[in-house]
Design a protein around this nucleic acid. Structure first.
Lengths: 196, 196
DNA sequence: CTTTGCAGAGTGAATACTCACTAACTTCTC
DNA sequence: GAGAAGTTAGTGAGTATTCACTCTGCAAAG
């Protein structure tokens, strides 16, 4: 993995992400990417060894930026509900501003890719699962969340709902106000989780 | 749309479904399909006009069989919870026995397909949404489910969780006991929805 | 001079599909 | 009943196009 990402690489992964969000994995051809970048197909190989490496870097960048970002929104002074809400508010805002990374959330098509791509994807998924698990356990411990349902299942319900939000966002051609609509769902789930 | 599906067509869509579940949309080439069917690539065109029509018929078959099936599991003598549970029990059992239809649930890659494919997909999604909405409204009306959250959001949470179950099933190379694990999630959600 | 960032021509493999044909089976006609 | 005609399901060769990538050369920047 490259130590530093060049400006051109960043442009290429952003362009790739845009193609992926509009045309899916099958649409990310060297030709289409070259058109989007306004350069020739062969120029791609000046910046990446092969096509896979583009997606790998895109996911890696998303992963590192997600970790950095979410770590700043989580705070020990907030309640677990507040932290969970903050996590997803940050996620929705981020994707609203950077829709080209949405492939990583939708992710089904990446499951049929190379192992290297899948590994980057799983890292992102595992990180999200870990921080949510932590917050929910804390919420249970302090009596904020219901105890009758296993934490893994609560995480599943939240993550599943989040993913469907992103799917619907794609269905709307990225026109849905994902922050507003997404947070509604998260708030509803938090209401369901409340220990009453 | 063909009025009756031939035996060979049924074999071809099942083979296509198996390829889709293992290799994704990009793996469904005429060569791969011909290999799976043990005949030449050109023989495919004896049964289908083009490749799209294979996927269209697969989704259409799934849609009609899903409607027929779910209509038989829903009963006016059952509570809405029981009906929702029965719907998903039937879904998980069906997919356990017919994993080759899972592409329709995972579905992200189909969003970048032709409009005809997307239309078939949306029909299936709309049908599921409609019957769940009906059951949840009934459950609210009779005081079984909480009223504070909109029905569309409750449907979203259930469907999102179901889809993530299927995604995890694919992640497990279809080895997870999807019926058991899936129903655990559905039961947890039903517990969350209970009006207390 | 070296490196970086390109371009255009090209490669071999893969893709969805067409075409002309064959073999086996069924139906029709005598 | 026999033979001809029609149908179905397949074949292999081929088509045009696309795909990811290589090679060679050039220009600009350091």
């Amino acid at each position: 993995m490259k130590t530093a990402i060049s400006n051109r690489q960043a442009e290429i992964i952003a362009a790739s992400g845009r193609i992926l969000m509009e045309k899916g994995i099958k649409g990310l051809t060297t030709k289409c990417l070259a058109d989007e970048m306004n350069f020739s197909e062969s120029a791609i190989y000046r910046h990446f060894k092969n096509k896979d490496d583009i997606i790998i870097l895109l996911l890696h960048e998303l992963g590192t930026s997600t970790e950095a970002r979410l770590k700043t929104v989580i705070s020990k002074t907030k309640t677990p509900e507040e932290n969970i809400r903050a996590i997803f508010k940050s996620q929705f805002t981020f994707f609203q501003e950077n829709p080209h990374y949405v492939i990583a959330i939708l992710s089904e098509s990446l499951l049929d890719s190379s192992d290297a791509i899948k590994n980057e994807l799983f890292k992102i998924m595992q990180f999200i699962t870990k921080i949510l698990t932590h917050e929910i356990e804390l919420g249970k411990k302090h009596g904020h969340f219901i105890k009758e349902i296993q934490t893994t299942e609560l995480v599943h319900i939240i993550v599943g709902s989040f993913r469907l939000c992103m799917f619907k966002w794609k269905l709307s051609n990225f026109k849905l106000d994902i922050e507003k609509e997404g947070l509604k769902i998260i708030d509803s789930i938090l209401l369901l989780l409340k220990n009453k």
